[in-house]
């Protein structure tokens, strides 16, 4: 139990996907201008990360390893993630119009989100058990939402502040992210 908690905290804070490992930067800079959007995106990504890490774990242990085709891992993982995202999009569109409006536009972006394939790779390479995969992908998801939420708050403030013209937009967003990343370094001190 302790180990699972450690993994969760590790991927939420110490190895924060966005601020320390640089995974999932596109939505971080793209949609993080409004808190609501940032939260929706974060929840969508977390959901996909969690479910696809379970699916890729099952595939690894019941397909790749028994048939000794671990080298097909990249092809299989990305195909599974792409079709899974497609499937969710179809289900959401049929079942709930309001949910589709809130999350639908982010779903196609998630396939090419490094965070989703990233967590699958980490658990594949680390030889995680199913529970460890779940704990680390939940942690990564929570860390993702956290970083997105903090960033959107800061960017809302940046919109109305006085920034040199050439640094408006992306450059100042990167510099803000730098400060944020620096502050996340302190989590390395968590003595786990």
């Amino acid at each position: 139990m302790n180990e699972l908690l450690a993994l969760f905290i590790n991927y939420a804070l110490v190895k924060n996907f966005i601020l320390i490992m640089f995974l999932g930067l596109c939505p971080f800079f793209g949609v993080s201008k409004r808190l609501g959007d940032a939260l929706s995106m974060g929840i969508a990504v977390t959901f996909v990360m969690l479910s696809s890490s379970v699916i890729t774990w099952l595939i690894t242990h019941f397909l790749l390893i028994p048939f000794k085709i671990q080298y097909m891992e990249i092809v299989v993982f990305i195909l599974v993630i792409a079709s899974f995202v497609q499937l969710i999009e179809m289900i959401i569109r049929k079942r709930s119009v309001s949910l589709y409006r809130a999350l639908g536009i982010y779903l196609p972006l998630i396939t090419t989100n490094c965070a989703v394939l990233g967590i699958a790779e980490i658990s594949f390479r680390g030889g995680f058990s199913l529970l460890e995969s779940v704990a680390s992908s939940l942690g990564a998801g929570v860390g993702f939402i956290l970083a997105l939420a903090i960033m959107s708050g800061m960017r809302e403030r940046l919109e109305i502040s006085d920034v040199p013209e050439s640094f408006e937009g992306l450059p100042i967003a990167f510099i803000t992210a730098s400060l944020l990343s620096l502050s996340f370094i302190v989590f390395r001190g968590i003595g786990l």
């Binding site: 640089f22 992306l170 400060l179």
Partner: peptide, 11 residues
């Protein structure tokens, strides 16, 4: 460090 990457890129 990661923070340095963000700063260099931004500047």
């Amino acid at each position: 460090m990661p923070a340095g990457a963000f700063l260099v890129m931004g500047v």
